[in-house]
């Protein structure tokens, strides 16, 4: 339950590897194979890294033990943040329309998850 330096190392690495692989590979797959490239990326990037981060558990989530397990912090956070930061460093501007869409999408998705069972 307690954090150790081992957990810190594996969680940081898990957070590093996901956006790095997405940023390096996804665009190339989509350029080469269009929509089918995204299908390949879904399985071979997200599926495979999910196995490492959450299946095996590189990302330590001690809050998931106990009587009210949660809230879950998914590796998705790292995909968003890593790609966003890379673009900001490149000098691209913050698109508030996109941020607002993403946040409202999360709120509506969360409400649906809350409401269904």
């Amino acid at each position: 339950m307690m954090w150790t330096w081992q957990h810190v190392l594996t969680t940081v690495f898990g957070g590093l590897i996901f956006p790095l692989v997405v940023g390096l590979v996804w665009g190339k797959l989509a350029d080469e194979y269009k929509s089918f490239g995204g299908v390949l990326a879904g399985f071979f990037i997200v599926g495979t890294i999910w196995l490492l981060n959450h299946g095996i558990g590189l990302m330590y989530e001690p809050q998931m033990n106990g009587s009210l397990p949660g809230p879950w912090s998914d590796m998705a956070l790292t995909a968003f943040w890593g790609l966003f930061v890379a673009d900001l460093m490149e000098g691209k501007k913050v698109d508030w329309e996109a941020i607002l869409s993403g946040v409202l999408g999360g709120v509506l998705g969360g409400l649906l998850l809350f409401a269904i069972v």
């Binding site: 989509a30 929509s35 995204g38 949660g70 809230p71 879950w72 912090s73 998914d74 998705a76 956070l77 790292t78 995909a79 968003f80 790609l83 966003f84 890379a86 673009d87 900001l88 691209k92 501007k93 913050v94 698109d95 329309e97 996109a98 941020i99 869409s101 993403g102 946040v103 999408g105 999360g106 709120v107 998705g109 969360g110 409400l111 649906l112 998850l113 809350f114 269904i116 069972v117």
Partner: peptide, 28 residues
Amino acid sequence: YAGAMPNRGAWVDMALSIWLAALLGGSV
């Protein structure tokens, strides 16, 4: 791919919605 999520500046991935959905609503 179809571009339903607007993206004209620094890339905002649908992953933001995914992360926030579980943080708020958990999983089923």
